[in-house]
Amino acid sequence: MTAPFLSLKDAIVRYDRLTAVDGVSLELRRGETLGLVGESGCGKSTIARAIVGLQPLTAGTISIEGETLQDVSSQRRVNLQRRIQLLFQDPAASLSPRLRVQSLLAEPLKIRRAFVPENWARIMAVAESIGLGEQLLPRYPHQLSGGQARRVALVRALAAEPSIIVADEPTAGLDISVQGELLNLLRALRDRLGLSYLLISHNLNVVGRVTDRVAVMYLGQIVESGPTATLFREPAHPYTQALLSVNLTLDANRRRERIVLSGELPSPSNPPAGCRFHKRCPLAQPKCASEAPTLQAGAGGRSVACHFPLAAKPAVMPQPIAG
C-alpha cells in the first residue's frame, strides 16, 4: 500500500454546542476514489469544507503528503491546500452571477497570477475536451443547464492544477443520462491527470460504481469503512446494512429485504450515550447503551465500530449508470 496523499486524524469540528464531526480519521491515496456516505446532517459536507480550508478544525490534524497543515507556515498551508479543490453541491450557486463563463474560468488563473497565454490555452483545451465550447464563454451562470454549470465548476477547479477533487453530491439534480456522462468524465480525468477523489453522495448506485473504498458516517463519526465491493456485499455494521437495504434496483432478483429503522436521527448537539446508533439499532444489547465502540481494523482493509458486528448478509450491488 502506498502512503496516503491526504490524511485526517481524529478530526473534530464544533459549532458552539453542536459537534458536527467527532473524531473522524480518513485516508486517501493517489489515484483513488473514496466514497463518503450517510444520512443528511451526519457531517459529510463539514468534512469536505474542513479539508479545503473553509472550516477550521476544533481538534485533530489534516496532512497532505505527510505534511501536517497545522505545523507549516501560512504560505505553505495555502500552497498545499490549493492542491485540493472542492466541487460544491450546488454548482450554480458557487459561480458569481455577475461574471460570464469566460471570466469565471480566467479567475483562478488571475488569483494565482498565472494568467498567461499558455495557461489560458490549457484551460480552453480542457474545457473543449469536456464539452464546454467557445459558444458558452459569453453566457452567465443562469443561462447554463445543470450539467453545463457543473462542467464550468470542474474546469475552474482544474485550473488550479489540483491533485485531489472533493466532490460534494456531484450528480444531485441531474437526470440519469447526464449523471452517466459526468461520472465517465470524472473517471477519464482521474486516469488522465492522476487525480484522487473524495466523493460525497447519497446515491449508492453512484458510490458503488465509481469508488474504490467507502466510509460510512453516522452522527459525526465513521462507523464502517472498507473496499467498496466487499462493503456492499458484506456490510458489518447494522447501520450500513440498513442503508444498503433501501438502495434502488430494477432487478427483482437482486433486491433484498428493506430494513426500516425505528425512531429519528438524534441531534448532534445531544448524541446518545454509548453507541450513537443503539436507539435505532434492531440488534442493540445493553452494552451498546453504555459503552461507545471504537473503529476496529479487520482483515482485507475493513474497519467497523460495532460491539456485535453482523454475520454479513449479501447486499445488492448497484445497477450500472447509463450514459
Results as ranks from 00 to 15, higher is better:
L26M: 07
E107I: 10
A273C: 00
A114D: 11
V246R: 12
N184K: 15
S73Q: 05
A167N: 12
L86T: 01
S303Y: 01
G274H: 12
A106F: 00
V178D: 01
N270T: 05
T294H: 12
L36C: 02
F5G: 02
A114K: 11
L57F: 06
S267T: 05
E118L: 03
H237S: 08
L195A: 11
T294G: 03
E264V: 06
L183W: 14
S269N: 00
N247H: 10
A3Y: 00
L95P: 05
Y197M: 07
A284M: 05
P108L: 06
E134I: 02
G66K: 05
Q296A: 12
P272Y: 12
S96M: 08
A159R: 04
T211Q: 02
E118R: 14
Q241V: 00
A48C: 10
S40K: 11
P235F: 05
G66W: 04
R187M: 15
L144V: 01
L248G: 00
T58W: 02
R256S: 09
R190P: 06
A121K: 15
I165C: 09
L87S: 05
R82E: 00
R14T: 11
G208L: 12
L243C: 13
E134N: 13
N79C: 05
L310I: 07
G173L: 04
D168N: 06
G133R: 14
K9S: 12
S103V: 00
A188N: 13
T230Q: 15
G274P: 13
P227Q: 07
P141Y: 07
W120H: 00
A20S: 14
R276V: 03
A292H: 00
V304R: 08
E257T: 15
L6H: 05
F5D: 09
S262E: 15
I130D: 01
L144R: 14
I164N: 02
R17W: 01
Q89A: 06
R255V: 08
G147Y: 10
Q319C: 04
V37W: 06
S225P: 00
I47F: 08
P162Q: 04
